[in-house]
Design a protein around this nucleic acid. Sequence first.
DNA 1: CTTTGGTATATTGTATACAATCTTTCTAAG
DNA 2: CTTAGAAAGATTGTATACAATATACCAAAG
Lengths: 219, 219
Amino acid sequence: MRRLLIEGHYPPGSRLVEERLASDLGVSRTPVRQALVRAAAEGLVQIFPNRGAVARSFTIDDLLEMYDLRALLEGHAAFLAAQRISPEQLARMEAAAAALEDSLNQTFARREDEVHFLVEQNAVFHQTIAEAAGNQRLIAMLNQIVAVPLQFRSFYWYRPEERQISNFFHRSILNALVLGDGDRARAMMREHILYGRDVLLQSRRAESAAVASGEENEP
Amino acid sequence: MRRLLIEGHYPPGSRLVEERLASDLGVSRTPVRQALVRAAAEGLVQIFPNRGAVARSFTIDDLLEMYDLRALLEGHAAFLAAQRISPEQLARMEAAAAALEDSLNQTFARREDEVHFLVEQNAVFHQTIAEAAGNQRLIAMLNQIVAVPLQFRSFYWYRPEERQISNFFHRSILNALVLGDGDRARAMMREHILYGRDVLLQSRRAESAAVASGEENEP
DNA sequence: CTTTGGTATATTGTATACAATCTTTCTAAG
DNA sequence: CTTAGAAAGATTGTATACAATATACCAAAG
């Protein structure tokens, strides 16, 4: 609800005036305030006492922090999942991995649709692992970390060869899970996450350079 | 503020009626609701739509989940801290470790005071490591996990020999940090946390047995 | 021209009132 | 005696009003 609105519509760093949000959403300030308080607890916005809320912006260091934790937590999840994952869950991950591979040879009407599809299938893959790990708190923490940088719409920056490598990691992780090899699953997951981090960082550097040279670019 | 109240005064599983909290705190329902929403986001209470909030209760499985994550996150924090910790931070940890050791030969007016002291010094030790790790999000996550089970007032259950072992772990961790050995710091921290888990689980089992046999016991 | 002070405006924080929903209790029928 | 249903009560969810605080603007003095 508010989450979708905040993630997409309000640029990071912008002030979130309660009354404006209220009229945008067609409700009064009371539920808006609750949503803001909750979003603040989840780290999506920052609330300054008596001075309102701003959509939180993320520095490069923030991204590094988040990916470091993601590598740790998802690696652990993969390790745990190796011992408990069910055939049904493996099948779901298999399907998601296959869909991501197929999409490389597929054409989408709009780039938006493609990114949306990639994000979705990728989420299925990773969430199934977290689910198979069987630790509710771990799931909650991962949701907290992963949901935020979707603002950056990482997938927007993936080029075909990077997607192929990403797909390869998915297969490696799946293979380790099938074999019940937790150590390999963890190692591959860590590399997968850190590779994603590197792709994002490189693209952001390229973007900054482009902006610096006066070029226009999409979000 | 509300956190202290929730942690101490309202037993897990009890309903938290907004109006009652409001009159207890001398404010209206509005700020109480915000506090509840926030506490729910932090996992301290559960909110059921249209049916109110309850102080969250924790099963044995919840404890296992939390300690598993604590071992992972604090181990990682110790690993990171080994490369960055400052002399000032090391001195602070040293002082806390020494205070915990000295307190073994010290008498307190009330058991309450002793537990309070132990919790406080222990918090200094662990929070300094998280701080030295230099990852804000890691700190936030640890606070989220560690704050909650303080309800259980783990230290209430520590006997002298268990406290000695705990102190030994503190010294081992400190030593590894001084040497800059991240792997050892992580390993020792993991063991320290998991040892704490075992002490808590044993005491809870003992407690259940005592209750089953009709004995009365403190919180 | 800059800076300080004060006033006006905007925005947040809290209280209160009312509507929506759930729970409990009482009654009546099977 | 049990169960279904309805009404009363309790509690949450939302809207609105007002108070507290911060920000912006303007005027006057240095």
